[in-house]
Write a protein that binds this DNA or RNA. Sequence first.
DNA 1: CAAGATTGAGCGATCAATCTTC
DNA 2: GAAGATTGATCGCTCAATCTTG
Lengths: 150, 150
Amino acid sequence: MATVTPNIADERIDHYSRLVETQRRLHAIFGRTLRDRAGISPVWYEAMLRIGRSPEEHLPITELGEAMQLSSGGATRLVDRLEETGYVERTACPEDRRVWWVTLTDRGREALVEATGVHLEDLEEHLTSRLSADELDMLAGLLRRIRPEA
Amino acid sequence: MATVTPNIADERIDHYSRLVETQRRLHAIFGRTLRDRAGISPVWYEAMLRIGRSPEEHLPITELGEAMQLSSGGATRLVDRLEETGYVERTACPEDRRVWWVTLTDRGREALVEATGVHLEDLEEHLTSRLSADELDMLAGLLRRIRPEA
DNA sequence: CAAGATTGAGCGATCAATCTTC
DNA sequence: GAAGATTGATCGCTCAATCTTG
């Protein structure tokens, strides 16, 4: 059986590289802005955003970690640091005593809203102002088709 | 002056989140495959790919680091580890003695080609087979328009 | 004095083992 | 035994300081 030698110049690699580099650069820009103008890391912002957007404004630590693609230990320590800073609190889940919910404190909610203000400016400048509404929809559709199961 | 309170449900955030999550999940899948079936991390793969694709098959450490969005120290240590493993070598740049070129060893080139084989299967399965050629072009075009300067 | 590379210190992640609760 | 959460060990990154060369 003849196997073709894999070609490192294969164009399929570039399709992925574009995605990686675009995301990486945006992440660097948005992260810098969040640090400089809102005083929090992009990871903290994402965590607080996910909590603030959840239906009851609280999430099990594991659920937060899975959404952010963190290990369980990573999620625990992220919540530790957010709690030490006074942005979130752990509260016991009444239905299942293995579970700890993460909730926003008032200070956390304020920090989230403030950070959202500066983040939206960045999003507008670097993303949403560069594409039309139709193009944004098209991008969303393409990404949805790519989105892997795992 | 009236300032509107930033809305954490703003849809512009979701446009970005889709990009982040798609890339993050693909990275996790591709990284797992590269580790399990080719024995190298996605970071090592990217580094060796960039060297292997460079015109003369060598890159200054700084240039490699910038392309991968690493700090200078991070780039140095990445090259250290690749060198210890025998995949790359440092060679002195004849024109500028401050510069060290990173080159692939024979073993490194073999590892790169082998890893490319498994990676291409992943790319095909999770990316290029899910979109038509036109759609891939469209995605490339949209990402190019988004690509930030920095 | 600027630029490329390296080093030490510290942080934030993973992995694997462990504890508690289901 | 499985699932949620935590902990200790370790890894790989950043940041800031340093060395060498231009």
